[in-house]
């Protein structure tokens, strides 16, 4: 497989000696124009990799914050096709920041896997994280995605033991997303030392970068987790910042974009300080 923006970004950060800040938001929350404006501004605020959620009516692995974001987006008429449109528009402005689409399988299955991976690649998507497609279902989307030149990023969890890890890692590319807790998005923060052990365990099985997510909300947590991981993923905190900035009818306000960018700048400070704090 040829090198993707994800591979290049992680390689560059490794040379820089710091972990990546991976930010998550839901496409179309609360409207496509706000998402596009955020996409354009996030790299400047310190986001190294952008995960863009594809809203789904039944987000079984998500907590209340991301569930609500998905509902806001769907209420605003967001669809799979419109999410790809957003990426296409973003690519006219930024050809370096990796975009990973994250979501559930049914909207893709409904669209057709082959057509989807082709359209996603053409739009400028770099990778996919599909929560409800375990390695047992690789022929559904993972293999077509890899063939189209997209990274397929798999989740590894505390329940993924050493016996199972090789199967989980086999067709994974780009990076490995370590879900730091057994739980849904937005759950309590993980204990940094346990996360470090788990990352070390995964690294015994792969050369891929390992990003850690679920439960990271603050710059301090990002720094602590980032000390031993190649990336730190922040989702619910960002989505909650969007929610808190909306007016009573759920529309974006003048405060929406600044609120998100302020949080991302802070988190970015966290990941940039992470290796220093270990050395100190």
């Amino acid at each position: 497989m040829t090198e993707t923006r994800i591979d290049r970004r992680f390689a560059a950060l490794k040379a820089e000696g710091r972990p990546a800040l991976v930010t998550f938001m839901t496409a179309g929350d609360p409207d496509p124009a706000t998402t596009l404006a955020l996409l354009k501004a996030l790299p400047g605020a310190g986001a190294d990799v952008i995960e863009l959620g594809m809203p789904f009516s039944d987000p079984m692995a998500d907590g209340p914050a991301i569930q609500a974001a998905g509902l806001r987006a769907l209420k605003g008429g967001q669809t799979l096709v419109k999410t790809l449109d957003l990426v296409r528009e973003f690519r006219q402005f930024d050809d370096a920041t990796p975009i990973v689409l994250m979501g559930y399988y049914n909207p893709i299955y409904s669209h057709g896997s082959e057509a989807f991976v082709a359209e996603a690649k053409a739009a400028g998507v770099d990778g996919l994280i599909i929560v409800d497609l375990p390695p047992e279902a690789d022929d559904e989307l993972c293999i077509p995605a890899l063939e189209a030149g997209l990274n397929f990023i798999r989740l590894a969890t505390p329940t993924t033991d050493d016996k199972r890890l090789p199967a989980v890692l086999e067709n994974t590319s780009g990076f490995v997303y370590y879900v730091s807790i057994n739980g849904i998005t937005g759950s309590a923060a993980p204990d940094a030392s346990r996360v470090a052990e788990s990352v070390a365990r995964i690294k015994r099985h792969t050369h891929l970068p390992v990003a850690v997510g679920f439960g990271v909300r603050t710059a301090e947590q990002a720094a602590a987790i980032g000390a031993n991981a190649d990336g730190v993923v922040v989702g619910s905190a960002i989505v909650s910042a969007i929610a808190a900035s909306l007016d009573s009818e759920g529309r974006a306000t003048a405060a929406t974009i600044p609120a998100v960018l302020a949080l991302v700048s802070e988190l970015s400070g966290g990941v940039r300080a992470s290796r220093k704090s270990v050395a100190a």
Binding site: M60, A61, Y105, V131, D132, L133, P134, E136, A137, R154, L155, A156, T157, P158, T159, T160, D161, R164, V168, V179, N182, G183
Partner: peptide, 20 residues
């Protein structure tokens, strides 16, 4: 053995649940 009736069925779950 993979849990399919024709094309239906299967195990489309998050990794956390897969071992369970």
């Amino acid at each position: 053995e993979r849990g399919y009736f024709g094309i239906y069925g299967g195990r489309f779950v998050a990794e956390t649940l897969m071992p369970l």
